[in-house]
């Protein structure tokens, strides 16, 4: 069950999407999110869908992996959609029992689902095609002007890289602990909300203890490999913008502008 969590996973490959500079991909993702929040009509959502589909095709990630990424959040998506359906009023569409469903509500709910799903798929596409080290390198470089203000940019990037590195390890560990507790008769599936939350304690406590031990050992291992902060570090992959990066960025900018203009025109 926990194996389904693909958050922050990276699928190595050698497509255009993999070869782009991580900074390009970060900026494109930001533009994509901005555009997504400006999209207000089926036409503009169509543009967004086209954008997403192109990116997926180029990256060869496969829709299965992307849809899998949605699994842990489908509950939130359905929940917000249902809330929208119930609370938004306008022109009545159908009446089922006591509830009247309005045209506007359906529209908002559909857009809401599209927006959240596309948001998640877009950002997952970023982590699927970019190794965490490259991703955080890109982030560090993009944010490096903030270093002048003494913001701990390198430290944040390193923390993010390590967090992404340990997600699979900790998920695996949680699975193990759960099996161990189940073997001792723990029950995670039945009972009320409170009971289920209580059942999580015997999982969380060992998980936390082990996470602290891991952190301690990792820190020692990093020190032994001469880590002493961001000062004077070099990189295996030197970040370099190439022609393809400028092209992709320009394309993303045009698409974002188009969606914003479409929104202004009421489309």
């Amino acid at each position: 069950m926990l194996k389904d969590i693909t958050l922050g996973q990276f699928f190595p490959g050698n497509t255009l999407a993999h070869r782009l500079d991580p900074r390009t991909k970060l900026m494109v993702t930001v533009l994509y999110i901005v555009a997504l929040f400006c999209a207000k009509s089926f036409v503009s959502y169509g543009v967004m869908a086209l954008w997403l589909v192109t990116a997926v095709q180029v990256s060869k990630v496969g829709y299965k992996a992307l849809v899998k990424g949605l699994k842990p959040v489908w509950f939130i998506i359905v929940f917000t959609a249902v809330l929208n359906l119930i609370y938004i009023k306008g022109t009545p569409l159908v009446t089922i029992w006591k509830f009247t469903i309005y045209r506007e509500a359906v529209e908002t709910a559909v857009f809401m689902i599209l927006r959240i799903a596309m948001l998640i798929m877009g950002t997952f596409l970023l982590t699927y095609t970019t190794s965490p080290i490259r991703l955080t390198d890109g982030l560090e470089t993009l944010l490096s002007p903030l270093k002048k203000l003494h913001a701990p940019v390198h430290e944040l990037a390193m923390m993010m890289a390590i967090a992404l590195r340990f997600i699979p390890t900790l998920i695996e560990e949680t699975d193990k602990i759960m099996s161990a507790q189940k073997a001792r008769g723990a029950d995670f599936e039945s009972g009320g909300l409170l009971q289920r939350a209580k059942a999580l304690i015997p999982i969380l406590v060992p998980l936390f203890i082990s996470a602290f031990r891991r952190a301690d050992e990792l820190a020692t291992a990093m020190e032994c490999r001469c880590y002493s902060g961001g000062e004077g570090r070099t990189k295996l992959h030197v970040l370099r913008f190439a022609a393809k990066d400028y092209l992709v960025l320009a394309l993303a900018a045009v698409l974002t502008a188009a969606v914003i203009v479409l929104g202004r025109m009421g489309l």
Binding site: F10, S131, P132, I133, A161, I162, R165, E217, L218, L236
Partner: peptide, 10 residues
């Protein structure tokens, strides 16, 4: 607990 990156060469 001593592997730092998600890709071997990194």
């Amino acid at each position: 607990n001593q592997i730092v990156a998600n890709v071997v060469e990194e």
